[in-house]
């Protein structure tokens, strides 16, 4: 995935079954953000792989004051990339098991 300066990782081990997983997000490279970022640390949250939209979580982070509106897209994309990777890994595990 593209280096957005925002890192998103699993905050727990993926058992491949749960649809709701814990993710952790933090800023690795502030220079890639448009707005001035207040370093608040790593943000942990749960994300439903089937029901939720990464951009909606990014919007909530903006509303909560973690990021500026101008960085919503980059945060949303970072979450989207990680979610896509998790889904891809799960599909690969399932097809390998067949």
């Amino acid at each position: 995935a593209e280096d957005t300066g925002v890192r998103v990782e699993l905050a727990e081990e993926d058992d491949g079954k749960k649809t709701s997983i814990a993710l952790r997000l933090w800023v690795e490279d502030q220079k890639k953000l448009k707005g001035k970022y207040k370093d608040s640390g790593a943000i942990e949250f749960t994300f439903d792989l089937n029901k939720e939209v990464p951009e909606a979580v990014a919007q909530e982070m903006v509303d909560s004051g973690f990021f500026l509106e101008s960085d919503m897209k980059i945060v949303g994309k970072s979450i989207r990339d990680r979610v896509a990777l998790i889904k891809w890994r799960r599909e690969r595990t399932i097809s390998r098991g067949k």
Binding site: R7, W26, E28, D29, S40, G41, A42, I43, E44, F45, T46, V57, E60, M61, D63, S64, F66
Partner: peptide, 27 residues
């Protein structure tokens, strides 16, 4: 540890904690 919680109006919970130094990219 210094962990704070933020609950949004939509009911989502954000748990904020310091990033381990080892996980930060060198500037």
């Amino acid at each position: 540890s210094t962990t704070t919680q933020v609950v949004t109006s939509a009911g989502r919970r954000f748990i904020v904690s310091p990033v381990p130094e080892s996980r930060l990219k060198e500037q």
